[in-house]
Amino acid sequence: METTPLITVEDLRVHFPIYSKGLFRKVAGHVKAVDGVSFSLGRGETLGLVGESGSGKTTIGRAILRALDVTAGSITFQANGDPVDLLALHGSNLKHFRRNMQLIFQDPYASLNPRMTVRDIIAEPLECLNAGSRQEIDEQIRAVAATCKLNVEHLRRFPHAFSGGQRQRICIARALSTHPKFLVCDESVSALDVSIQAEVINLLMDLQQELGLTYLFIAHDLSVVAHISTQVAVLYVGRFTELAPTKELFFKPLHPYTKALMSAVPTIDLDREFNPLKLAGEIPNPAAPPPGCRFHTRCPYAKQICIDEEPEWKQWRPHHYAACHRVAEIN
């Protein structure tokens, strides 16, 4: 894991303004979707991002892809030797930089324009970059389609000819057409049936091996994340609570929230005890997060200090970070 980081994210903050109604819409507050997240991700690694709905998983992915406005922080991308400050890119620089990073969506039905042929869908990123003549583009498309196990015959069909799994392969082909280095997979296998899902996971892992890709893998299904990731970060109301290599996180979690998450995954292994840790209450509103540790409202170990002070993001074991006042006491 001692590779040079491909992506370094520091203190990333994404706040969405809440407007009041009316003609002169004033900013009435902010939803702090992502509020101070830092990590770095090496070439060929996969960072799994888990957390419950509303925790800011999707926002982190989209922020790195510059699909929405970042409030504060920095994102550095080591594309070809020189580090590039992603947030400083604008206009055509940004447009050309987009070839390095792509998004694979959750819903393979909504993410393909039903009115375009598969060929045109995969060609779009190349055409936008003016990546050569029609013939050159066609050659590249055939190559990338073959990588994603689509045959030439499929290219002249429309998306409605394909099942969910096949559509997701088309999405992957589109994302790979510009030979990106970094892919954000936002719940990319969640909408697929189990028997199909395995095939897409295998394809993603094979592609990573062959092409040296780096993934940010966002999912709510912990087993899937565990399977594909080299390290996993747990997100709670816009902040990381814990970040560790996969096995370490799943088998030796430090943070009480991670423990609760892990214990709640239903497993088909009937000999393993299924005894979910009970969490009181509901996930707090990210527009008004609780003071101190954001998890204190639901934490079974919360003490006065958890309400008063924000816990420090600290390395407790090699590569194993957590933000909790009581790590030492409860483990």
Binding site: G165, S195, I196, A198, V224, H227, I228, K247, V265, D269
Partner: peptide
């Protein structure tokens, strides 16, 4: 059997998932 083998499991993190071939 195919379904059960296709489920990623914490106990088999390093083994390749086996998928049920073809589409529904």
């Amino acid at each position: 059997r195919g379904l059960l083998a296709a489920i990623p499991s914490l106990d088999r993190l390093d083994t390749r998932l086996s998928s049920v071939p073809g589409d529904i």
